[in-house]
Write a protein that binds this DNA or RNA. Structure first.
Lengths: 123, 123
DNA sequence: CGGTATCCCCCTAGATACTG
DNA sequence: CAGTATCTAGGGGGATACCG
């Protein structure tokens, strides 16, 4: 965007999209087994068919996931993380842990700010 | 969004915004010293006055940064990470390291995908 | 079953201008 | 110096419908 040499911004643009990090998580939890499209959908509550498809294809484009199709009728499509995807899961898991431990604190900070900005709201 | 119990999504919604992670990084690098608004702007190439202001205020709302105003004319405003913000810097730094080590691989994967999708583009 | 195609809304973030 | 206010385009992502 402003500096193509900032890989962190590029990475966050990818894992920051709504479903990407969750897809990586689900695929990482299932590893070393593959996961089918419908199973992924089931494990990602709220995702639409379209957004799951878009998310998976971007993971594949980025070399983070691999796709395998069984040429049956109807077809069975399987996904799994690549080695690159698995390596990303490491720092991502650290971020998840931080989130689980500290998001409540962030929520509290927001509540405090709101209370100070609009004291009447506490009525 | 779909599940308020997913703290990771909430966290990514914050650090995924364009300037947040960079602001955290600059503040972390300067720590334990404070950083003034103009200095932050200088160290974040491309950020507009408005977006820096918005970014900093969201960090403050979230309890990740603190603001100190010297009541002079013109005013001097100083920012620094809170303890919570500093703790976030740890997993964020891990993500940055991963990005620096592997984004080139992701770029290569994209180039390969493009070449396979549009072979004519290689002309 | 596992997708694509189409439409549309909203929010992020940039440009610009003004202020205590 | 350090902001806020206003306007706007652009893209993310949801709903729906159709397809191999």
């Amino acid at each position: 965007m402003f500096d193509p040499q900032c890989p962190t911004r590029q990475l966050l643009d990818r894992i920051g999209t709504k479903w990407t990090s969750m897809a990586v998580k689900v695929l990482a939890e299932a590893a070393p087994h593959e996961v089918r499209f419908a199973e992924l959908r089931r494990r990602m509550p709220g995702v639409s068919q379209k957004m799951l498809s878009v998310t998976l294809h971007s993971l594949i484009r980025d070399g983070l996931a691999a796709r395998r199709v069984e040429p049956t009728v109807p077809p069975r499509v399987h996904y799994q993380l690549t080695d690159l995807g698995s390596s990303l899961e490491v720092p991502l898991a650290a971020l998840r842990t931080w989130a689980e431990e500290h998001m409540a604190q962030i929520d509290r900070a927001n509540a405090t700010s709101d209370a100070q900005a609009n004291p009447a709201d506490r009525a």
